[in-house]
Write a protein that binds this DNA or RNA. Structure first.
Lengths: 204, 204
DNA sequence: CCGCTGAAGAATTTATTGATCATTCAGGCG
DNA sequence: CGCCTGAATGATCAATAAATTCTTCAGCGG
């Protein structure tokens, strides 16, 4: 059992090294296999497909993010500040990762295209931490009460989508992105403090 | 003079008909020329390049939008509602246009890639109407005072970027997009009502 | 002259073909 | 018997050549 997961780890590691350097498209299964002294066919006993290797790679990246999100969401800083920290940390990490290894952007693109559900899964996970912060903020009186925390978290995610894979949606520099993110967060946080009124209808 | 702009209009019209049906890439200059009973070379006396035809096409679409934005921004409805109307109208119009003529999405993509400045120009124009609404809202006391209206408008645009070319960023249906847009607007409007406090620093 | 054409050149796109790749699986090895 | 290999297969990709297409411009006709 540990033997099996050890090999899996080795494959993932070899794949990550190659993919980070050469990109997803330019990395072949037999190259990964060669790095692990095994046949390409054998990889399939550990990963159902090449795409699943990319997914595992992203999952690893995400779990590091979530670790920090969890810590931030539990900290005793003001909730508004925790909200900022979560999104700034996410922005900085992904921007840096893509800056350092441009090929990571390709992995994000491929997964976004081929595994949209995985992306949703990540958003749902992130919302758990956002809800913690929102609920705490409400309890402390920093935020006005909210009907549905998860819904509000979803709306916040929608508004900040641009900063999730920054290099995918624009070509802004990190400072400009941070400035924008801060500006949008200013509005969102003010809105949370004020209390959100849902409007019934909107016609024109 | 009127003769020249008449021909220009004719070319643009012929080009639009073809591009909407066959797409930008599949429409050739000589086809457009043939539709206008002229040579391909002659088109270049009216448009500097094929890309400029696409730009003129988008400019036409935008000017219709701006017309309505202008009316909305001047109406006497509550500013918050005007804000909603602007973005909902934009969403509905672009979604419908792309739904009806899928090839329009290609034009948006090409222009986004090849003429990023044109896109910025459009955003700047839109901000003029947003500023009108914001300033009016502040005057009426619906919104709290703002340091820099144009900056705030820019932040609102950032938060709502996803709804600009909806089919480009997601595959959500129009109702789902409208629901999301409304949710994000709820937060933004609450924030505007409350007043936005700029935060000095954000470290983690 | 002015407005236009149509040929010419450069750049891009398409078609085709050969190679490579992801994935499967029959069979060998321990 | 279970773990692994390496050949087989269909799909995808790369490379090249051929054909189109965008764009320019010399020169024709009004």
């Amino acid at each position: 059992m540990s033997d099996k997961s050890k090999t899996r780890e080795q494959i993932l590691d070899a794949a990550m090294n190659r993919i980070k350097h050469y990109g997803y498209g330019k990395t072949t299964m037999s190259e990964i296999a060669r790095d692990c002294d095994m046949s390409a066919g054998n990889i399939y006993r550990f990963f159902a497909s090449k795409l699943d290797i990319a997914e595992a790679m992203a999952r690893k990246f995400n779990s590091d993010l979530y670790q920090t999100y969890s810590e931030i969401s539990r900290s005793d800083a003001p909730p508004a500040q925790r909200l900022r920290q979560v999104f700034h940390y996410g922005l900085d990490q992904t921007f840096d990762a893509i800056e350092r290894e441009a090929k990571i952007l390709e992995v994000a693109e491929v997964l976004g295209e081929e595994r949209p559900l995985f992306m949703n899964e990540g958003l749902a996970q992130e919302r758990i931490y956002l809800c913690t912060i929102l609920e705490d903020g409400i309890e402390r009186g920093d935020f006005a009460p909210i009907a549905d925390c998860n819904y509000t978290a979803e709306m916040i995610q929608s508004a900040l989508m641009k900063y999730r894979f920054p290099q995918l949606f624009s070509r802004l520099t990190l400072p400009k992105l941070r400035r924008e993110l801060n500006g949008v967060l200013d509005i969102i946080i003010a809105g949370l403090a004020k209390g959100i009124e849902k409007t019934p209808e909107t016609e024109h």
